[in-house]
């Protein structure tokens, strides 16, 4: 059940170009937070910013009740967030949306494919998978070398391949280029990133079972306002904030 939480910033660090890692201390248990879910953050103390910002959950330290988020500064909301200091309070709705359904899946090997700011939720997922004895291969794509983050963290959990669009670090090209080059074997794939990347990934892996996580400009974040919908293969629609952000790769039609 989604709750409104009063979080305290325990750590805020720039980890790559325009990219911040923030630790948020929760007053309540974090045990209900699943990989793939997001938190919906209020920006500012007044009514200047009426829309919350959905930020994916990069990791949870349950014993210390700390939620870790990684975000890129792309506008006023994330810019505000990046300037907050240790001890400052954050008003967030959590946990929001669906999660990667790993408890329902039987697998030995998982393939994770992340792009840019779609990489963070895959980290919490990778840790959960490794805890369950699943071996993890990660393909992570970034625009350029200065934007690469969490390479070592992913390496601690399995084999990692990095691609940059401009070739300034790792493989030159897209995550799909790495996939074609290494042809990994896996039972399920899990992907998160910008929609053009997800389109490429789902096309490349169209006969493989997998799950994708989407991003969109959101309103309420709880399924009431119909701002973040996309068409589903059954002829209907899905709300990204409520039915997603994680979907079976064959469930939705990417625009």
């Amino acid at each position: 059940m989604i709750r409104k939480a009063n979080l305290t910033i325990a750590h805020n660090e720039k980890i790559a170009k325009s990219t911040f890692l923030m630790h948020l201390l929760s007053e309540e248990s974090t045990l209900d937070i699943q990989p793939g879910q997001f938190i919906h953050i209020k920006i500012g103390q007044d009514h200047t910013h009426m829309l919350r910002r959905p930020i994916s959950i990069a990791d949870v330290d349950h014993s210390n009740q700390i939620i870790k988020i990684i975000f890129k500064t792309v506008g006023e909301g994330t810019g505000y967030l990046s300037k907050q200091k240790t001890g400052d309070k954050i008003d967030a709705l959590l946990p929001c949306g669906s999660s990667y359904p790993i408890d329902k899946l039987t697998m030995k090997h998982a393939l994770l494919i992340g792009g840019g700011i779609g990489v963070p939720p895959l980290y919490y997922l990778a840790k959960q998978l490794v805890n369950r004895g699943v071996s993890v291969t990660s393909i992570l794509g970034f625009q350029t070398a200065s934007q690469v983050f969490f390479e070592e963290e992913f390496q601690a959990l399995g084999k990692v391949y990095i691609a940059t669009n401009d070739g300034s670090y790792g493989y030159s090209g897209f995550v799909t280029d790495i996939y074609q080059a290494i042809q990994p074997s896996f039972d399920y794939y899990f992907s998160c990133g910008p929609t053009p990347m997800l389109k490429g990934v789902t096309k490349e892996l169209e006969d493989k079972p997998g799950y994708i996580s989407l991003e969109e400009r959101m309103g309420c974040g709880v399924g009431a306002c119909f701002a973040c919908v996309l068409p589903s293969r059954d002829g209907g629609y899905k709300k990204i904030c409520q039915h997603g952000p994680v979907f079976d790769a064959n469930e939705v039609i990417l625009a």
Binding site: L51, E76, R217, M218, G219, F226, A227, C228, V229
Partner: peptide, 23 residues
């Protein structure tokens, strides 16, 4: 009705724009 294409919302100073399209 399915409504409009996304993005359907944008934040503005002390407000927001929406174009859901009566979904």
């Amino acid at each position: 009705r399915y409504g409009n294409a996304t993005p359907r919302v944008a934040e503005t100073t002390s407000g927001m724009l929406n174009a859901i399209g009566l979904q």
